[in-house]
Design a protein around this nucleic acid. Sequence first.
DNA 1: CTAGGGTTAG
Length: 621
Amino acid sequence: MPEPNSFVWNMMIRGYLRNKEPNKTLQFFEQMRLRDVKPDKFTFPFVIRACADLGLVKKGQWVHGQVIKVCLSVDVFIATNLIEFYVSCVSVSVAHKVFDEMPVKDTVSWTAIMSGYVNQGGSNMEMARNFFEEMPVKDLVAWNTMVAGYVKIGDVRVARKVFDRAPVKDILTYNTLLGGYAKYCEAEFVLQFFNEMPERDVVSWNSVLGGLVQNKRINEAMLFFNRMQMENVKPNMVTLVSVLSACGQVGALDMGKWVHTYIDRSGIGLNAIVGTTLVDMYCKCGELESAQHVFNCMPSRDTVTWNALIMGLSMNGKSKEAMKVFLRMQDECVMPNEVTMIAVLCACSHAGLVDEGRRCFDTMHQKFGIIPKLEHYGCIVDLLGRAGLLNEAYTFIESMPLVPHTGVWGALLNACKIYGNVELAECASKHLVELDPQDGGYLAAMSNIYANAGKWDNVAEVRKLMKAKGIRKLPGCSSIEIDGEIHEFGVEEKIHPRSGEIYKMIEHISKLLSLAGHVASTTEVFFDVEDEEKEKALFYHSEKLAIAFGLIATDKGTTLRVVKNLRVLVLVKITGDAAIPMNALAESNATRKFCIKPSVLAVKDNVLDRSSGEWTRKLVL
DNA sequence: CTAGGGTTAG
């Protein structure tokens, strides 16, 4: 075109913005100015939005200056976009100023500033509320914004009050409140609200599903997913991501594979989120080859994807490979974030790479601009502690510029447990109980540490304290997937329909184990039962129930995949022709997952070998 | 036949 007018320029600018190329938008804006075409009231909203998308503070402010120069700052559309820009790139208070200076405001501009305060969360909700009550005309979106705001700060009761007050509601109003219920309320209540909704869309289904998954109610989540299919609601990516996350949590590999093929067949291709979830799921199921394969096939990867693989390898004891992936990540110029560093430090910790871990910690700020947070300090304490450098770990805590949280002291306590350091353990647990009086786990650990040191008076004292406070350790829980169905087991739980057979099988295995000369360790794990019951309790430890069930419910040679709820640090993988389990697991509450082949049963060796950098429990049967 | 605000996932 010889001389495109402003309308044409605006179309180009809009087109690039809509196709997620804000850089091109700005380039065209620049061209437009160079060719002396005056930007108009339509041009600026796009340009401001492009600046906001790219986080270009200076540029945005400059554009604001231009707007003032051409006397367009009175335009409602432009001002509203400026509000959004300042909210996302500068601060709500600056946005607030722009709002105050608007000569004419409409419902959208009121909602924009309200939403700005809503997204800040916390006490800013009061400001949002003031705006809301003051705005002259409240439309559907304004009501929805308020409901969302209260959901965001976790106040579902007030959210419901606003919801009830709203004169008009659409599916988004319902979905917003439903999302809040899904996050904070009992599953029964959520389902009741869901069932009573006048209409439901995929988002409604996804909210409930996501809530169930995040609350670890995996069986219900899977049933809900089945119901969704029965009612012919087509799952979208969000649905599948939730299902995959559920699979990872309980090691449901069959289901995970099914979802994977479903994704492939549906032809959507892997986006970064779905791909990452697949990588994560395969890692948590111990299928590292599949995880790597998905990773390599992904057309686009981001930092989170790399994090999933590094953490996955590390969780499975492949620390060296995790470090290699970290190097490759840097080669490919993907910027690590805080989570990456946690995964990397975790890998160092597992492999006992003390110096390497320290170096990563010391250089992460200058190399990647990541300021160490409490989690990173926790990793270093864990790293030093596991390596037996307990005093150094303690000095490290003392020198921290941040106030140590439960993760930091917990790591020290854990290390004290491994190395039987009573004195430091007392110090750590004192801090832990102060920080989180509700959690009985620390006192439980303390009781075990005293028991291992033979300090029975102290054991009794701690037990008494726990009884008085009425606190208990979080119960262990294991799950196993058989023929696509997930079976969960708690300690000494007898509600499984085949529990009779399961307990018989446990006794059978136990006989074989003691015939082979194995003696169960009774010093740890159960502090709150009498000594004579200890053996029984250990004996019925939740993963044993899961394994025993696996043994009776599958054919010989089937791999059993058992997942625990507590701790996700070390993977015990049983290798060799055959392998087995029972006490390997009871003694390692750091176990996340293990695979066994139920073919032979006899114990020959019982050595914990960590020389290869992996935890390998050799119990050849 | 040009513009702004509200819901689900790694």
